[in-house]
Computed example of a mutant assay.
Amino acid sequence: MTTESPSDYNDLETLPTAQLLAGMNQLDQTVPLAVQQALPQLEQLVEATVARLQAGGRLFYIGAGTSGRLGVVDASECPPTFGVPAGLVVGIIAGGDTAIRQAVEGAEDDAEQAWLDLQEHNISEKDVLVGIAASGRTPYVIGGLQAARAAGLATGCIVCNAGSAVAAAAEFPVEVVTGPEFVTGSTRLKAGTAQKLVLNMLTTATFVRLGRVKGNKMVDMQLSNEKLVARGERMLMDELGVSEAEAAALLRQHGSVRAALAARA
């Protein structure tokens, strides 16, 4: 596994802060290029996800440690960003919600638990399951994908090593080969960054395709704080050519940017 290969940097403890930061930054610049190589694979996963969600399915993530946390983060950001129901994108981490803040030792080694965790959400063949595992060998993720695929779900994955067991278990694997880390084996670094980029692209492209963005604006975003209300007002001002006061009144009246735009169409 290249993610476990020795770092190209050594004697880190002897380096001044400026050199530590420069080295990490230099490596980080390779991540988008690695993601670029995987875009054809990601396109297939997006198309499969769009089709399942259009047919009434949901998107699930499973992962352990950093990978699991990234899935939970992406899932939690979809409702406020795109105005979708909270249960449409679901992130599940090995060890349960406790593992979001504190490592649950051994949770990732249970190949049977992911499918049990998914059953709590009444998962079905209409849904999509994406396994996230930098190493590509996490038993929790492999077992979950194998069971899901056997049950007829669309399955994808995001891994950072080539030719992994996780990729073999998924119908639509996305392999972003990020190489050795700055600190040997610390996949929360480059691999974690790559996974976050791919997750951003997966859900953003999916919900653009599903009509949750108009032009380049989040017209379905939840107006849950003053910043977002102000953003919504600016959208209406730009789109409709109205004053700030008129935009505020429209937003109060209709409750969302999309509804306000539709009312003035």
Rank of each mutant, 00 (worst) to 15 (best):
Ser243Phe: 03
Lys227Pro: 13
Asn216Pro: 04
Val219Glu: 00
Leu251Ile: 08
Gly215Arg: 10
Ser186Trp: 00
Met218Cys: 00
Val242Phe: 00
Ala247Leu: 00
Lys214Met: 14
Arg231Leu: 13
Glu239Cys: 09
Leu210Ile: 02
Leu250Asn: 00
Arg258Asp: 02
Ala245Asp: 09
Leu210Thr: 02
Met201His: 05
Val219Tyr: 00
Leu261Lys: 02
Lys196His: 09
Asp220Ser: 09
Lys196Gly: 12
Leu228Lys: 13
Asp220Phe: 14
Ala260Ile: 00
Arg234His: 10
Ser224Val: 15
Ala248Met: 08
Leu240Gln: 03
Leu197Met: 15
Val219Trp: 00
Leu236Thr: 06
Gln253Pro: 02
Leu236Ile: 10
Gly241Ser: 13
Lys217Asp: 14
Leu228Pro: 08
Arg188Trp: 03
Asp220Gln: 11
Gly232Asn: 02
Lys196Leu: 14
Gly255Gln: 11
Asp238Met: 09
Thr204Ile: 05
Arg212Glu: 08
Met221Tyr: 03
Leu223Ala: 11
Glu244Trp: 07
Met235His: 04
Gly215Phe: 11
Leu240Lys: 04
Met237Ser: 10
Arg258Met: 09
Leu251His: 06
Glu244Cys: 04
Gly255Ser: 08
Met201Trp: 08
Ala194His: 09
Met218Leu: 14
Val219Gly: 01
Asn216Met: 03
Ala249Met: 10
Ser224Gly: 11
Glu233Ala: 15
Ala191Lys: 05
Thr204Glu: 04
Val198Thr: 07
Ala248Val: 04
Gln195Ser: 10
Gly211Ser: 08
Leu250Asp: 01
Gln253Met: 12
Gly241Glu: 09
Gly192Arg: 09
Arg252Asn: 15
Met237Gln: 15
Thr187Trp: 02
Leu223Tyr: 06
Thr206Ser: 12
Val229His: 13
Gly255Thr: 10
Arg212Leu: 11
Val219Ile: 15
Leu189Asp: 03
Ala260Trp: 00
Arg231Ile: 13
Ser224Asn: 15
Ala248Cys: 11
Gly255Tyr: 10
Arg188Ala: 01
Val257Trp: 01
Leu189Val: 13
Lys196Trp: 08
Ala205Asn: 12
Met237His: 11
Gly185Cys: 11
Leu240Val: 03
Ala259His: 06
Ala247Pro: 05
Leu197Ile: 15
Arg188His: 04
Lys214Ser: 14
Gly241Ile: 09
Thr193Pro: 07
Lys227Ser: 11
Leu261His: 02
Leu261Cys: 05
Leu228Ser: 08
Gln222Glu: 15
Lys190Met: 09
Arg209Pro: 01
Arg252Glu: 15
Val208Glu: 05
Arg212His: 12
Thr184Gln: 06
His254Gln: 12
Glu246Arg: 01
Ala247Gln: 03
His254Asn: 10
Gly185Trp: 05
Arg209Asp: 01
Lys214Glu: 15
Lys196Arg: 14
Met237Thr: 07
Leu240Met: 06
Asn216Asp: 08
